[in-house]
């Protein structure tokens, strides 16, 4: 019996070590906000503690398949029923593990997410640097910057956001349920007709995508920093009918100076049209 447990322990350590190499794989999209870094860290942490649990079950199965094989169909194994202390200990250990995961990362990070209002939900947030109203409809987004009197449609131009500033998106829908998702920020919130939901985010990395390839932008993007990165996109993440898969729009996170320039250009354009 002791021999079996020692061998199993060796196998378990080995399987764990092999599977833990997943931690070194390139897993995540570009990190575009502070919250994205936190979210990735939680994923890594859960992976690190989850793999030994998975490896435990797998090791017992592999070990038993090789070591406890019947030679004849009718022979019988050890006669214990597992009525002793072991199941009680198991219950305590698994219960403790579940409680540990509930507390950290579960409730602690949830509290952080909600209290700092860096996440999504219903919370009203103070100290907002920029407010953007997002309205979903089949199959595009409309973005409105009330402060600057700018309104734009996702299918004609990209959403432009300044980096390192606290931005609140208030999200709404005029027809069916959509979901506003920016993979680089690791945040999404559903757009529900009849109510307004929020995401608050502080993007800390500049980046852009040009999936739509609008001709008038090709010259612009040539001068832009970095390469096109499809993690910087606004994607609908709730099935909303026929063109759901194409409800995907470009996002540019730029410096404050570039943002101001963009705002000035937009306002000048609007003025020119008005006149």
């Amino acid at each position: 019996m002791t021999r079996h447990f020692v061998s199993l322990a060796v196998l378990w350590v080995f399987v764990t070590a092999v599977v833990e190499t997943l931690l070194f794989v390139d897993l995540f999209p570009t990190v575009g906000s502070e919250f994205a870094q936190e979210s990735d860290d939680i994923v890594r942490y859960l992976l690190a503690i989850g793999i030994p649990v998975f490896a435990m079950a797998v090791s017992v199965i592999i070990y038993a398949m090789f070591q406890f094989r019947a030679k004849e169909d009718t022979e019988t194994g050890a006669g214990f029923r597992g009525t002793g202390l072991f199941p009680k200990a198991w219950l305590v250990v698994t219960g403790g593990m579940a409680a540990a995961v509930m507390i950290y990362p579960g409730l602690i990070d949830l509290a952080k997410l909600q209290n700092t209002n860096s996440g999504s939900g219903w919370g009203e947030v103070d100290n907002i640097d920029l407010e953007v109203s997002v309205t979903g409809f089949r199959w595009a987004w409309q973005f409105e910057y009330p402060e600057y009197g700018i309104t734009l449609l996702g299918n004609t131009e990209p959403l432009v956001i300044p980096a390192d500033e606290r931005v609140r998106f208030s999200v709404d829908s005029t027809d069916v349920v959509h979901s506003f998702w920016v993979p680089a920020w690791r945040l999404k919130i559903d757009a529900i007709p009849g109510r307004t939901t929020f995401i608050t985010v502080t993007p800390d990395k500049e980046g852009w995508s040009n999936w739509k390839r609008f001709p008038q932008w090709s010259d612009e993007t040539e001068g832009m920093a970095g390469e096109s990165d499809d993690s910087f996109r606004v994607q609908c993440a709730e099935l909303c009918g026929s063109d759901h898969g194409f409800m995907r729009f470009d996002l540019r996170v730029v410096s404050r100076e570039e943002f101001d320039q963009w705002v000035a250009d937009k306002q000048a354009q609007a003025q020119a049209k008005g006149n």
Binding site: V60, I61, A64, M65, K71, F86, T94
Partner: peptide, 22 residues
């Protein structure tokens, strides 16, 4: 995960030291 863990307990405990007919 706790009641699910009990199912794993029983499955893994039953194959341990058994005579598995694969």
């Amino acid at each position: 995960s706790v009641p699910t863990g009990l199912i794993f307990l029983s499955a893994l405990g039953t194959i341990w030291m058994g005579k598995l007919v694969l």
